[in-house]
Design a binder for these strands. Structure first.
Lengths: 368, 368
DNA sequence: CGGAGCACCAAAACCGATTTTGTTGACTTA
DNA sequence: TAAGTCAACAAAATCGGTTTTGGTGCTCCG
């Protein structure tokens, strides 16, 4: 009965009922100038024949695709960003309700991203884009703005005006992080930051500095390190900061991935996160709950963010002004167990570390 | 210069050159009955005007979308499956080279999945599907087979004939896992399995049993537990097995998520994975490397699998027979540090456990 | 009673490509 | 030299919808 390619078309329905195909279309699109009787007959035929309009044909005429695009950055083989997969999940859920679809593409470089944008726009495969992991000067946003193509950014740029965005108040979160750590009794607080092209990394560093300033703690540049946003970066960052003469007793990390690496490094050199060193991450990744110790972090519900961003984009497509759609949300501190009062003074920590590192100098992250 | 909606069409190009639009199309599609001179002029105009054909219009005529679909199952708020995000990454990378796109949808129930399939097929938004996490009797596969719609499954079903699939030899892997654990000196080996609707869960259990049989170890049904595939399930599974009078000294887990939960439970009751209890997972999740202890697991490179599956699907769309596309791959044991020789006999372990549990009965997985 | 107004729907145009069919002039070939 | 062949393109049909334009018959109204 259900031959594949010979899908039932609007002509089949029209013929079956004995009306013009335009009439069928009008019924399906809720026009009012159709008699009740005809409407019923058509609706019945639609149901009987199992007719569903072809998205392609409809889109051709309407000039819309009912599809949103997202381009996710990927490194070289180092796996997907766990934050992004949650984010996509959130988007997809929201779109399901709105009856839209999501086109996912990956890009391995900045240039490749722009290429992909161009391609998808030129071929008219999507109506709008969701841009993630914004950079301070983001070429994607510049491109989309110039082309005047609808999009919503998750995260801001250096100049966050003129386009729609959804972001977390990164400054506030990290200022709070500093305050929290300080209240636990820490005086030397380190920052394992992310590369500064990433806007959120810059903002979190700003929040870190502001937090210190608010507390009247002198800012020591040595306590800041910048690393690529990955577990590996976290290892390197922790190693660098803990090797200081006056090491920090707490590490505030720009992302959970960095924090996971930092915790791993601590473990490696015989330090217990949460007891000997406080480590705090950011992202609220589910897996953080199952680490040892469970990771204290900031949650920003990637899923919720995805849903929110998707809805903002559909608002834009419905004609809303992008500038009216700028939303700043708050991140919540989720206390688990990787933070605590400092066990040692920085000086004591330093001598203890020197002892330990003599015995077992750190060498990569392989098992022994 | 670049007005958005007024994208340049094939008519613009034709007019610009002074030929019929059909001629432009023929040039772009490499027909031979065009003079070299005309071809050059048209190509130049295409470049000058920056013309790119509308995917929609092309698809309408051709009946193809150059888009593949994937429907990912999601639970209720418990986050994305990390395995799937890697998998999608692999697919997207492969499709990038093939100049195809990927449409991602989520579904929260079995019915919803079929609905989504129906919708995407009826509206002709995709040319084929990739089906993941196959079940023993998978309604999606049944549906797609019945509709005769192109698809490739990642994983098999009870009757894996008549369609294209890519799978890991789950039996072999788990038999090897048992062999490995046994060679470390363990005699009582537990299985934390996944729900048996999932085909891979069933196969891995089969491999576990076969492995024991090969070694001449008597199969004790008490040593098997079935849990939902999540960290939570891992906690429950470990709790159940370790509470036995004769508890296992090693836990073979159907997925990394289960293993992560199992490790967490061990930690909670004062047991160290890798030393006191051996825990082995399956999936090769990157995060496993940063756990304490780093997780011993089976790798099946989700990324590679994604790429492979995508290419198989395009082969089918190019006319290859699905039945000729069935590929069984091998999983590799990645030894990290969650496995090791048993520290205690099962009996000794049991008494030690009874001691510990008296003091601090386990109660959920919240921080203290 | 003639024309305006309306309800209802048929017919045709259109979206932007691909593909089929037709046409023209030059060149063979018998 | 008339008929046939072929290269090279124009013109039209087509894909499956949406939207615009055009009737038709009926009612209403001055």
């Amino acid at each position: 009965m259900s031959r594949l390619r010979g899908s039932v078309t609007i002509d089949d329905v029209a013929r079956h009922v004995g009306v013009a195909k335009g009439t069928v279309s009008r019924v399906l699109n809720n026009y009012t100038d159709i008699s009740d009787e005809t409407r019923k007959r058509i609706l019945k035929a639609v149901k009987d024949l199992g007719y569903q309009p072809s998205a392609t044909a409809r889109n051709l005429k309407r000039g819309r695709q009912d599809t949103l695009g997202i381009i996710i950055p990927v490194g070289h083989g180092n796996g997907a960003d766990p934050f992004l997969s949650e984010f996509i999940d959130g988007i997809a859920r929201a779109l399901d309700e709105l009856d839209l679809d999501l086109l996912v593409t990956t890009a391995h470089s900045r240039e490749h991203m722009i290429e992909s944008l161009e391609r998808l726009i030129a071929r008219r495969k999507v109506d709008g884009f969701i841009v993630t992991r914004t950079e301070v000067n983001d070429p994607r946003i510049a491109y989309l703005q110039e082309r005047n193509f609808p999009f919503v950014a998750h995260g801001r740029t250096a100049n966050p005006s003129g386009y729609a965005w959804y972001d977390i108040d990164n400054e506030a979160a990290f200022a709070e992080g500093v305050r929290h750590i300080y209240s636990l009794g820490h005086e030397r607080i380190g920052l394992v930051g992310g590369t500064l092209e990433l806007n959120f990394a810059r903002q979190r560093r700003e929040g870190y500095r502001q937090g210190l300033k608010d507390l009247g703690v002198k800012h020591d540049p040595d306590l800041e390190t910048i690393q690529t946003v990955s577990e590996k970066g976290g290892i390197l960052g922790a190693e660098e900061l803990l090797a200081l003469d006056q090491p920090p007793t707490a590490l505030l990390c720009a992302t959970d991935a960095l924090a996971i690496g930092a915790v791993q490094y601590c473990r490696k050199i015989g330090l217990k996160a949460g007891a000997d060193v406080t480590v705090i991450g950011y992202d609220g990744l589910p897996v953080g709950e199952y680490l040892d110790p469970p990771l204290t972090t900031f949650s920003q519900s990637a899923q919720e963010a995805g849903g929110r961003v998707a809805r903002m984009l559909t608002d834009i497509l419905d004609g809303k002004s992008p500038t009216s759609l700028q939303e700043l949300s708050k991140a919540d501190l989720i206390r688990r167990a990787s933070d605590g009062a400092p066990a040692k003074t920085p000086a004591a920590l330093a001598t203890a570390l020197r002892e330990r590192l003599k015995d077992q100098p750190y060498s990569g992250n392989k098992g022994e």
